[in-house]
């Protein structure tokens, strides 16, 4: 299978602190990769680096968008990286709180639209068509994610689980080839988690989007992942299939006896 994200020797320093230490990670087409590790292992920092929020201190990040040339993403701005086709959600939900659910998704389509100031003022045929298309596309996405009942709600009034799903819907709207999910199941109850599992699998199978996720809930990780990467202190300490990771003594030690099967 084709590789779509290749991270080589990634280093990130904050002052004297090394948050990421020579990290190598690969994601292949239509794969679900889980990134696990104790708190403070540098998982979210890794997301921030590859999405351009922190410029990495060293190393290589290479993206391979389908049907296009590969791109080095080390020094690109976040919006450029999203344009290439990497989208993410946030650990602590970061919706546009005072906008409606639909508008949140429409924002996601921003970089796939082209109308400018002149279009906005004169509202020519092209702009009108584009706007209608965006509304329709956004509806479709919301339906797919199962949020169609909330379309015109203000985002911050949504129940917690729905907010998490909206984050995913918004990221989907940017038409990514790789979706980064930062603890999508955090704070969800059993039923919500189960629905989320199904949703993630559907996104991969129906939309052909690869997924890289950070997750602490081992049930989610074990049932979804094709491949698991374990981090500790900014380093990759193990990687492999679910079976390999379950039986890896280094991983068990890193979790200090935490029952990873639970």
């Amino acid at each position: 299978m084709k590789t779509i994200l290749k991270v080589k020797n990634l280093i990130m320093n904050f002052g004297g602190l090394r948050a990421l230490d020579h990290l190598d990670i690969q994601v292949r087409e239509e794969e679900i990769v889980a990134l696990i590790g104790p708190n403070g292992a540098g998982k979210t920092t890794f997301f921030n680096c590859i999405t351009g929020i922190f410029p990495p201190t060293g190393g290589e990040i290479i993206l391979f968008p389908p049907k296009k040339k590969s791109k080095r993403a080390n020094r690109l701005k976040p919006n450029k990286i999203t344009e290439i086709g990497l989208a993410r959600t946030f650990q602590n939900i970061r919706l546009f709180q005072n906008m409606t659910v639909l508008e949140n998704v429409m924002i996601g389509r921003h970089c796939r639209m082209s109308s400018g100031i002149v279009g906005a003022i004169f509202r020519g045929k092209a702009t009108v068509k584009e706007e209608e298309q965006v509304v329709e596309d956004s509806f479709k996405i919301l339906k797919k994610i199962g949020l169609s009942e909330y379309v015109n709600e203000i985002a911050m009034n949504l129940p917690y689980g729905a907010q998490r799903r909206l984050e995913i819907a918004r990221a989907m709207a940017t038409e990514p080839f790789l979706l980064l999910l930062d603890e999508p199941a955090a704070g969800m109850n059993i039923q919500e988690t189960k629905d989320l599992n199904e949703l993630i699998l559907r996104i991969r199978d129906e939309e052909k989007i690869s997924i890289l996720l950070i997750e602490h809930d081992m049930r989610v990780v074990m049932s979804l992942s094709d491949h698991i990467v374990v981090m500790d202190y900014g380093k990759k300490i193990a990687e492999g299939t679910t079976e390999e990771i379950k039986n890896n003594p280094v991983v068990i030690k890193a979790y200090l006896g935490e029952d990873i099967d639970a």
Partner: peptide, 8 residues
């Protein structure tokens, strides 16, 4: 000043 690292 310390350079702030934005928490995300």
């Amino acid at each position: 000043g310390r350079s702030e690292s934005r928490a995300v």
